[in-house]
Nucleic acid binder design. Structure first.
Lengths: 226, 226
DNA sequence: ATTCACAGTGAGGAAATTATGAACATTGCC
DNA sequence: GGCAATGTTCATAATTTCCTCACTGTGAAT
């Protein structure tokens, strides 16, 4: 039996997870925003915290960061794709795993079990996939979410970061527009294909001389070629 | 391509989903109540079942429960707003997601894709049907969509890529013009046969010395011979 | 050698696709 | 509320690619 804290502003989600967790014999507390989560985490020793990213008052990242100041409770993040997806890899925050919506409670609890078990065994967090990449004068730091162009820090918007990060993580792989929409915007984005073009354009503009790494694959999509 | 079972007592709903799903290239079966759904699920291995909750004879929950006795096929539930939301996650039933009416078929299919993909990811590790092929100095990379000729990158148009890729994927197989038209151009192309010749010509020109791999089968079509 | 059905080629207009700029919408913040 | 930044849509311009078609080349059968 674990003590679990479920943090989400949507009651439905909390309810759903609570039911399944209790069904499996765990004890569940709830909080509906980051502030409340931090307080509860301070008072009580949970085995794991399941937390949404998108919340009022204090979002998942910040709440996690705050909690880390006094405790190492494992955290499982819930997120929709397209929610600055890459921040999830913020291992410096000590996020142990994440689940992308739509999830089944079954899946969530499977991960909870895996995390708690792993945590009990050792204290090692998840493995990171290289934190920085460099292509000539273009430097990308996935952890700090920074992009440097010839040493100068680029000022990208969140979508631009996400798009660039996804492209770079899949460098030298031909990516269709659909794939990009699905992975960067999220499965629940029902907008126009051409939105990608616009973001690619802005990204290219921001990359200056290194725009060359983003190649157009006519009739298909794009590719980061390095 | 997925095999999908759509279960709903309203024909309109079934029809709408079927059309969209088939448009995306999936194969669709229908059932109009729970009983029929259980039977069909028993006979056939579907990739996913899309099922309404409210149905005559046997409702969605019970049908799902019944199916679970012999199979783990993922289930996406359709529900009208206000239909006891939390029951939806009768998790012990292993419902994977739900969509509330009124829904767009696009949304339904987006979730179907998410679920099936997730399900496939946990089952099989990697597909890997050789990502690159090399014939002497001709190197073809299906993943990065690159073609190298003696180390130099060839600049092919989309159709040329498609044509070459298809030929290579079916190397040493005689391909008729009709087959090529159907597979590379698509079933909805009603143009001239000779269009192929033109593209073959361009492809050959682009392949330089390796044009030799594309052989003409007089009276039949072409073949990539290696 | 001749024939003739089929394949190869070149060029121009048609069609498809991408790039871009600006309008419009949304979000977060003061 | 109003502002500023970001994200999305859309119309248009700029390219690139495709398709058709007429003509030329070729090979196998007679």
């Amino acid at each position: 039996m674990y003590k679990i804290l479920v943090v989400d502003d949507e009651e439905n989600i909390r309810e759903v997870i609570r039911e399944y967790a209790e069904f499996e014999g765990h004890e569940v507390d709830e909080a509906c925003d980051g502030m409340e989560a931090v307080e509860k985490a301070k008072e009580t020793d949970y085995d794991i915290i399941i937390m949404d990213i998108m919340m009022p008052k204090l979002d998942g990242y910040l709440a996690c960061k705050e909690i880390r100041k006094f405790k190492q409770t494992p955290v499982l993040m819930l997120s929709a794709r397209g929610e600055e997806y890459d921040k999830l890899f913020g291992f410096e925050l000590g996020i142990d795993d994440y689940v992308v919506k739509p999830f089944s409670p079954k899946e969530v609890m499977a991960r909870v079990n895996a995390i708690v078990k792993r945590n009990a065994a050792s204290a090692a967090p998840a493995p990171a996939s290289s934190d920085v990449e460099k292509f000539e004068g273009l430097e990308i730091n996935f952890v700090s979410r920074d992009v440097f162009i010839d040493g100068e820090k680029a000022n990208l918007t969140p979508k631009e970061y996400d798009l660039l990060f996804y492209l770079v993580r899949n460098k030298n792989i031909a990516l269709t527009r659909n794939k990009l929409l699905e992975e960067v915007w999220g499965y629940d984005f029902f907008g126009d294909d051409r939105t990608i073009d616009t973001h690619i354009k802005m990204l290219r503009n921001n990359l200056g001389p290194y725009r060359k790494f983003i190649v157009t694959l006519r009739g298909l999509g794009y590719k980061f070629e390095a």
